[in-house]
């Protein structure tokens, strides 16, 4: 008997694989810094750029960096996006705003969340959030040495 497409089997499965990723020295320092509400960056001795999060080497000059500096917790939004959809295993639950933020005195964008505003209406969000807008880090009570120890960046009033 001829089978129809709908009758063909589908095998449902989940692949689940455990990992233990090493931070290494530089990022251990960076994430330890978050525990004490400090955002650390690195200054390249050659191009003089301040990069955040910390780097062990400059991706343009290819020299090692060991000049660690605490950077500002305030900066300006360079680009942002409001996420409204959810997918399997999504690490951050929508709605949320992901943003590129240029922290004061640094030379690259820091990727994080913009929060502390009502996200229920996209049109309202668009009127509130602007590129160039000043934002400031808001910390969680409990720190784990995790990138989300910074709860989000909120608009500076």
């Amino acid at each position: 008997m001829e089978m129809k497409h709908e009758d063909y089997y589908i095998l449902e499965d989940q692949v689940s694989i455990p990992y233990e990723n090493a931070y290494g020295l530089t990022w251990t320092r960076f994430f330890e810094g978050l525990k004490s509400e400090k955002i650390f960056g690195s200054r390249c001795g050659k191009c003089n750029r301040v990069l955040v999060p910390m780097r062990s080497y400059c991706p343009r000059c290819f020299i090692e960096i060991d000049d660690t500096i605490e950077v500002s917790q305030e900066g300006a939004i360079v680009a942002w996006v409001l996420t409204e959809y959810e997918y399997f295993g999504m690490p951050t639950k929508p709605p949320f705003i992901g943003a590129l933020i240029r922290l004061d005195g640094t030379d690259c964008e820091f990727v994080h969340l913009v929060g502390g505003i009502d996200l229920s209406n996209p049109d309202q969000v668009r009127k509130t959030v602007k590129n160039g807008m000043k934002v400031r880090a808001v910390w969680k009570e409990e720190k784990k040495g995790h990138i989300l120890d910074i709860k989000y960046f909120e608009p500076v009033k």
Partner: peptide, 26 residues
């Protein structure tokens, strides 16, 4: 081991199409 590590499990859901031949075999 000198520095911190980050433990996590990646889970991915899948649906494999058996197609006509494997369907008949199963």
């Amino acid at each position: 081991k000198e520095f911190n590590t980050f433990k996590n499990v990646i889970r991915l859901p899948h649906k494999y199409a058996a197609g006509p031949t494997y369907t008949k075999f199963y």
